[in-house]
């Protein structure tokens, strides 16, 4: 790729003049603003998080902050009798479920939408705008909107009953709760993935399609033989983003199923961490959960790039 080639020539240039060992500060000055923010808002909190996960920690009680070693990790990961264990694992299970429900839609629907929006017809910019619009809303607005539709006695159930169908039963029970949350999430975030796909689709040279149609390939064949392979890098990116976004599920169940998330079975892992750290003030334990989940997601992301991105990295 272009960038790595440039980097290569630069390396050669510097090694070509070994006499000068003077450090050039200019590049560092360029990255300084980002470095400051990176350190303050990413590196420091990250390592501080690992640090507090080793303590019984409450930020408003500096007088009581005993070092507990790996006990917080032991409680959530291995100690079946601890109060943290069951809730942590059920939240992991719930989040995994949500990933399974939402990611396929967020990728496949987004791709189909992008293909449709990439066509040449009047008013396509209006549609592009329309499909992207919900993404500009905050999670609260999106979740409240869909709560009104899906809640017990809400719009959906009212109309279902009116046309003689059985009601879904609201957000207080399954499957209504997951359906509601998944639909809300797809409606809210699909625009982002669509835009990324759309940009990638426009990068595919028209000549490929022309050549294929000359060879007699129909639209479906073109889609699977040209569009999908050409989109592969972007596809990996979108899958990763969708996966991480879904793993970070918080606002939708927080608003749509609220305190009942645990009973209904929609309590996500971030909700659990929030509850443990911010509501119950067990911040050490919450930090241990964050670190554990971060490790798992890091692993998933790596796997994702290894499996889907194979052969794309050189």
């Amino acid at each position: 790729m272009a960038t790595s080639q440039q980097a290569g020539t630069q390396t050669i240039a510097t090694t070509g003049t070994p006499a000068r060992r003077r450090v050039n500060f200019v590049p560092y000055l360029f990255i300084l603003p980002h470095l400051i923010f990176f350190t303050a808002f990413l590196a420091y909190p990250f390592f501080y998080g690992i640090y507090i996960s080793l303590f019984n920690f409450d930020f408003l009680r500096p007088e009581f902050r005993p070092f507990v070693g790996l006990q917080n990790y032991n409680n959530i990961l291995f100690n079946r009798n601890s109060v943290q264990f069951t809730d942590f694992w059920s939240a992991i299970g719930n989040t995994a479920q949500f990933i399974l429900y939402s990611v396929p839609f967020l990728v496949i629907f987004a791709l189909l939408l992008a293909v449709l929006l990439n066509g040449n017809y009047r008013g396509r910019n209006v549609f592009r705008g329309l499909y992207f619009a919900p993404y500009a809303l905050s999670v609260t607005v999106a979740a409240v909107l869909w709560r009104w539709i899906f809640e017990n006695g809400g719009l959906l159930d009212t109309y279902l009953t009116r046309i003689g169908l059985p009601p879904l039963g609201g957000l207080g029970a399954q499957p209504g709760a997951w359906i509601g949350i998944t639909v809300a999430t797809i409606w809210w975030t699909i625009g982002f993935n669509t835009v990324i796909f759309l940009a990638a689709l426009q990068e595919i040279p028209e000549s490929l399609y022309e050549a294929a149609s000359l060879d007699g390939a129909n639209k479906v064949q073109q889609f699977f033989r040209i569009t999908i392979p050409m989109l592969r890098p972007v596809l990996v990116f979108v899958i990763t983003i969708a996966l991480l976004a879904s793993a970070n599920l918080f606002g939708q169940p927080h608003i749509m199923t609220g305190v009942q998330s645990r009973v209904v079975g929609t309590e996500s892992i971030v909700q659990r961490i929030y509850d443990e750290g911010i509501i119950q003030y067990r911040m050490g334990s919450a930090a241990a959960m964050s670190v554990s989940v971060a490790a798992v997601l890091l692993l998933l992301t790596t796997l994702n790039f290894r499996i889907f991105g194979r052969g794309e990295q050189q």
């Binding site: 808002f41 990413l42 420091y44 909190p45 990250f46 501080y48 998080g49 507090i52 920690f57 930020f59 500096p62 990116f237 990763t240 983003i241 991480l244 793993a247 970070n248 918080f250 971030v270 961490i273 929030y274 750290g277 911010i278 911040m283 919450a286 930090a287 964050s290 670190v291 989940v293 971060a294 997601l297 890091l298 992301t301 790596t302 790039f305």
Partner: peptide
Amino acid sequence: HRMTALIMLMSLLGVILAACGGG
């Protein structure tokens, strides 16, 4: 790859750590 990994870490830890940073 690196960027997404960092985004992920940030969003996960952000909630807890931002609050804990005060002290």
